[in-house]
Each structure stands twice: as C-alpha cells, then as structure tokens.
C-alpha cells in the first residue's frame, strides 16, 4: 500500500479540493468515468458532512494494489460531536440540515465497502472502499 494522501477539511472550498484530488487518484488507478463520478460524489458527501457537522476533519486516500484487486480506500476522520443513532442516519431521507437526506446511505450505495465508527462527543470515522471492476 502506498503512503496515503490527505486533505484537511476546514473551509467550504476544501470540499471541492478533496473531490478533485480523489477523482484524480481514481483516474490514475484505472477507474472508468462512471466510477470516477461515483467516487468523487461519495467524497463530496463525506467532506460536506465533516464541514457541516464537525467543522473540521480530514479526508484520506489510500491506493490498494494487491494480487487480487485494485481499488481506492477513502477515509473520513473528524473529532466532532459523533453520531448518536447510526441506524437513523443510514435511513434514506433522514436529515438534520435540510438537505435531501441522501448523504450517508447514498455513499454506501456509491461505494463497494462501507464502515462507520462513531463515538458521541469524540468523533466519527467512515471508511469506504471501491474496487476496480
């Protein structure tokens, strides 16, 4: 595994920076145009969640290149308020920000693997992976 690259999310514009870097990495790994859009969109959702709910955090990218498969692992870390009811945020249409409520369940559908860890008042880590088909 190559060393990961990270983007700090503090300002609104960082959301754009994160998804642009993510798309570039995905392109280099060899993802098709549709999967590039999926990955960029998932990153955008994750970064926006950090910006909206935790104010600051990090989006990190890992390139996975093993014998069996290639892929990209996107990890979102923050030390914000955490999520009290994970079941609820994974429901379609649940929102506290007035958005479409498509964020996290949407990310899960866009990516192949999805893992959410959250401790209230400590922070949240979301780790998602997409494999090259």
């Amino acid at each position: 595994m190559k060393p990961q690259s990270c983007v700090n999310i503090k300002k609104e514009w960082d959301i754009v920076g994160a998804r642009q870097l993510g798309r570039e990495i995905a392109k280099k790994i060899g993802f098709g145009i549709v999967d590039q859009a999926r990955i960029a969109t998932a990153i955008s959702e994750l970064a926006r969640n950090i910006y909206l709910y935790a104010e600051q955090g990090q989006i990190c990218f890992d390139v996975i290149d093993t014998m069996e498969h290639k892929g990209i692992c996107v990890t979102a870390n923050d030390s914000g308020p955490g999520i009290s009811d994970i079941g609820q945020v994974m429901q379609d249409g649940y929102t506290t920000s007035g958005g479409l409520g498509a964020g996290l369940p949407g990310v899960k559908r866009l990516m192949d693997e999805f893992d959410l860890k959250s401790v209230e008042n400590k922070g949240t880590q979301i780790k998602t992976t997409k494999w090259v088909r």
Binding site: I33, V34, Q36, A37, R38, T41, L100, G106, R109, L110
Partner: peptide, 14 residues
C-alpha cells in the same frame, strides 16, 4: 446531464 452524473444521482437515491 452526463451518463456518469445520472447514474451517480440514481445511486444516491436522488
């Protein structure tokens, strides 16, 4: 709207 964008929106459930 580009195919990749449309597919992503559908995946998101929008």
């Amino acid at each position: 709207i580009q195919p990749a964008v449309a597919i992503t929106l559908i995946d998101l459930g929008i």
